[in-house]
Every structure is written in structure tokens, then in C-alpha cells.
Amino acid sequence: MAKNLTRRDFLKHTGQASIAGALYLSNPGIIYGNQSKKSRVVLIRHKDVLDDNGQPRKAILADMLDEAVSTLLQESDIQKAWQQIIKPDDVVGIKTNVWHLLPTPPMLNDLLTERVQQSGVTENQIGVKDRGLLSDAIFKKASALINVRPMRTHDWSGVGSLIKNYIMFVEKPYAYHDDSCADLASIWHLPHVKGKTRLNILVMLTPLFHGVGPHHFNPKYVWQYDGLLVGMDPVAVDAMGVRILQAKRKAYFGEDRPINPPPKHIRMADERHHLGTADPAKIDLIYRGWAEDRYI
């Protein structure tokens, strides 16, 4: 059962509560279950991935994606690495995100589509979509899903996360808003979703670390991080993303400024829904590429 956490729980166990507002995810002893195997997450960055207009350079982004997948699968041959993820007879849904102020870069959708095709899947068996999944022919029969979205802070769930990206797999997304969206991970256990996700990519090229106003956005709070977080375990990837956001907020504001409200749904994804692990002690974070201002 989920523990009712307070600031004091963190003070008692770590001597600092500042991390708690971020996620409560830096505290292995008190929170998490008994996953024995570590979740591997790859953080890859390249300082030249974006051009002067903020658009991704395709060759660099492709290299980043390939190196991340190769590292994640521990397979130097990228073709073979993808073949571990996608089979030729798969029907593949690439769940993207179209939020107009910070969408998944279309170029990344295209690259993923290319890689899936190179794994032997024909073009007409691949769909790239955010909205209307329940009535989409490809997503309705999808045997494999790839989840890709940018990370950003969010007014109600704390962050827009990989876990949250699947809210479009339900008819009534608002039914999951209760308790600051604590139970979003339950969507991942629905029959039409469960067990299908082969890869999760949290786009950290230009994350949003703070939001203002009705649209929770201002360019002032977007920063060029030039990274991708890639993993099989969406909870682990989200947990690492939140730590980066939280560190950026501390650096920017000059003081601890917890993500508000706390992204409870990530902890609940671990503790209540057992979707993956949010415990840093159970996450094998592998760094690749540019290290400056990595924040983690």
C-alpha cells in the first residue's frame, strides 16, 4: 500500500527534504518495492543537435537515437538492436505528442518510423499519432508501441511524462485527473495497452522546467538541454527526467523550488501500479555524449 509521505519522512531518512518536492525519488530505503533487476536508462546529449533556429539536425539526432538504442540493448549493430525491439510482423503505433507549444519533433517521429521500417515492418503497418488512438486502425491492432514525447512541467500532474502520454488510450482522460493524476499508470495495464510498449523516449532537447499562465508556457522557461532519455522502463525514464528538471529549477531560481504539484503519478506508477521503478538505486543510468550542465 502506498505510504502517506510527509516532509519529515525525508528529513528523517536523508537529512534533506528538498528532493521530496521534486519527486520523492531519491530515497531508496523507504519507498520502493523489491525489484531485483535494475532498469537501464540512457541519457544521450549532443551540443550541436539543434540548429540556430532551434530545429534538430537530422544526422545528429539520428546518431543520438541509434547510439542510445544501441547502448540500451547492449548491441553495437544498430540493425540487430532494433530487431530486438520490433519484429517484421509487428503492427507498430508510435505514440507521439502534438501539444502545439512543445510537440515531439516531427523529425524524431520520422526517424523512428524509418528505424521501424528497417526492422522489416511495412509502412502501412506503422502509425504515428497522439489523438484519436481508440478509433485509429493501426493503434487498434497494434502489437508494439513506441512512446515518445518531450518532458515539461504540468499544472496538475506535476510533469508531462511518458506515463502521462498514454492518457489518450482512454475514452475519458478527465477520469484520471483525480489526486493530481496519481493513477495514470493504471492506463498501462488496460488490455489494449498492456505489455505492448517496446521503447520509451523522453525528449529532452528543449524541456520546459516551469510554467506560467493558462497555457503553462513561456519561452523564458524552456532551455536547450540537447538530450534524449531512452529506456524500456517508462517509470525509470520519467524519474530521471524529473531529476533533471528539478536540478534546473534549483539552478535557475537559486533555491529549492519543487515541481508543483509533486509528480505523484510517477511514484504511484512504481509503488501502486508496479509499472517500473522510480528508485535511483534500482536504475542504471548510462551517460553518453555532451556532459556540460548535465544536472544529473
Binding site: 516532509r7 496538475w156 509533486p262
Partner: peptide
């Protein structure tokens, strides 16, 4: 209550 943690984490519930 969700805005209780605006400045630092006080409690989840």
C-alpha cells in the same frame, strides 16, 4: 490541498 506543496514538500496526502 494540492497547492499545499507550492514551496516545498509538506505532505502528499
Amino acid at each position: 490541498h494540492v497547492w499545499l506543496n507550492s514551496y516545498f514538500f509538506i505532505a502528499e496526502e
